[in-house]
Design a protein around this nucleic acid. Sequence first.
DNA 1: ATGGTCGATAGTCGA
Length: 256
Amino acid sequence: MKIATWNVNSLRVRLDHVLAWLESDKPDVLALQETKLTDENFPVEAFEGAGYQAVFCGQPTYNGVALISREPGEDVATGIDGFEDPQRRVLAATYGGVRVMNLYVPNGQSVESDKYVYKLEWLAALHAQLASEGDRYQHRVILGDFNIAPDDRDVHDPAAWEGKVLCTDKERDALAGILGLGFVDTFRLFEQPEKSYSWWDYRAAAFRRNLGMRIDLILASEGLSGLCTGSHIDVGPRRWERPSDHTVVVADFLGG
DNA sequence: ATGGTCGATAGTCGA
């Protein structure tokens, strides 16, 4: 099973990119974030025409997540259990016996912001759900835009970013807490090029200068991580005309 | 030089 994640920063603008990538790379499941579409405007037919199913959870203007898949997903669920939230950031479904949870973690804006408090509360609620539902699923994948750089290898300039949002100890501790439930960052199971990033700011020619961060992650539960045969960042779509500021991250698993 | 550039949307906000 090939599974991938991509923050598209408006599916309306990026639909042709997504369809081109599906055609060339043929994933079994592609998790999208920042679709920025209401559900009635979701381009279901475009994906069906490409041989894919879609489930989605959106709102006007902001956020929005979707799961694009070869086979239909089962037991589709939205949001975080017990966490009231009008922001559409979580969508889960089961594919071939693997529970897949697609996340658009809040950005947090800055450590002084109310949005940072919301980010930490959101992560705590996510942790609680992941902890409580562990015995319900044999295999789980948690993927998406985490808006957290796991460690300094994942940051182009760790000194400049120290203590800044995406890199604070509290965010990294929250991620470490999730990993501590028994999840593995599949990207780091394999040897990777130095300065591997998944997001580059649109400003200051950051992509050309490779001033990026690795904040888009594919976590697998421990048993499933043993079936992971590879993980990589596909930087290609970031070079396309009018790109998203994020690119695609991929993980492959035996079976499914 | 404390900005830059996008996207959604119509003056700014969010990233």
